[in-house]
C-alpha cells in the first residue's frame, strides 16, 4: 500500500476524531464565556465578596497546569468526593477546559472593560444610569469590540490545547493519531493530522478576521 492510499484509509477516523476536537473546543469556549463574564465583573467590582473569590478563581486556574486540573477532575476528585464522579471522559475534559478557559477569558474581558475611559462611566452616572445599566448600555458595548481579537486568539489556543485530553483517552484528533501510529506501526499519520489541525486553525483565523473587520464600524 502506498502512502497516499494509507492516508486515505485513515481519513474517516481522523475526521471523526477532529469532530470531537471541535466539539470540545466550541462547547468549552462557550461555557467559559458565560462563566468569565461573571468573573470579570466580579474582579472589577468594589464589593469584597465578589472581588476576592473571582480573583482567587482566576489566580488558581491560571496558576496551575491545565493538565493537572484535568487529572484532578477526572482521577482525583471522584476519589476524594465520590459525589463528583464523572463517568464520561468527554464531560470531564469539557468541565476542566471550561473552568480553565474561563479564567483566561475573564482577564481578557476585565482588561477590555478597564480600557474604556473612566469618563464614560462618570457621564453615565451623572445622567442617572445605575452601575449595572452603565455597564450594560455604555461600557460593555464598547469593550465588546476590544475583546473580540483576544477572545478569537484564545479560541485558537484552546483548539490546540485540547490535544491534552488524549492523555485521559478522549478520542480527539491527537488520540486517534496516536492510536493509528501505534497500531499500524506507521508514523506517517502525524502528517495528515497536523494538516487537519492547520486547516481548522486556518479556517477559524479567516472567520475571525472577517468578524473583527465587521465590528470596527464607528471608529
Amino acid at each position: 500500500m502506498n502512502a497516499i492510499e494509507q492516508i486515505i484509509n485513515w481519513m474517516p477516523a481522523l475526521v471523526r476524531a477532529s469532530g470531537w476536537t471541535l466539539a470540545l473546543t466550541v462547547t468549552s469556549v462557550f461555557a467559559a464565556l458565560a462563566i468569565s463574564i461573571f468573573l470579570a465583573l466580579g474582579k472589577i467590582s468594589h464589593k469584597p465578596y465578589l472581588k476576592y473569590p473571582s480573583s482567587a478563581y482566576v489566580f488558581f486556574f491560571r496558576g496551575t497546569p491545565l493538565l493537572m486540573q484535568l487529572f484532578f477532575i477526572y482521577y482525583a476528585l471522584p476519589n476524594l468526593v465520590p459525589a463528583f464522579t464523572i463517568k464520561s471522559r468527554f464531560m470531564a475534559a469539557f468541565i476542566a477546559f471550561s473552568l480553565n478557559v474561563a479564567a483566561y477569558l475573564a482577564e481578557i474581558i476585565r482588561a477590555a472593560i478597564e480600557s474604556i475611559d473612566k469618563g464614560q462611566m462618570e457621564a453615565s452616572r451623572t445622567l442617572g444610569l445605575s452601575y449595572v445599566q452603565a455597564m450594560r448600555l455604555v461600557i460593555i458595548p464598547q469593550a465588546y469590540r476590544r475583546m473580540i481579537p483576544p477572545i478569537c486568539n484564545e479560541f485558537i489556543m484552546v483548539l490546540k490545547d485540547t490535544s491534552l485530553v488524549s492523555i485521559i483517552a478522549v478520542t480527539d484528533l491527537t488520540f486517534q493519531t496516536k492510536m493509528i501510529a501505534s497500531n499500524k506501526a506507521s508514523q506517517l499519520v502525524y502528517i495528515p493530522s497536523m494538516i487537519i489541525y492547520l486547516i481548522m486553525t486556518g479556517f477559524f483565523t479567516i472567520i475571525f478576521n472577517k468578524l473583527e473587520k465587521k465590528f470596527a464600524i464607528y471608529d
Binding site: Q120, E122, A123, V138, Q142
Partner: peptide, 8 residues
Amino acid sequence: FQRFNLFP
C-alpha cells in the same frame, strides 16, 4: 465635562 464624554 471638559472632554465631552459622549458615548462613541
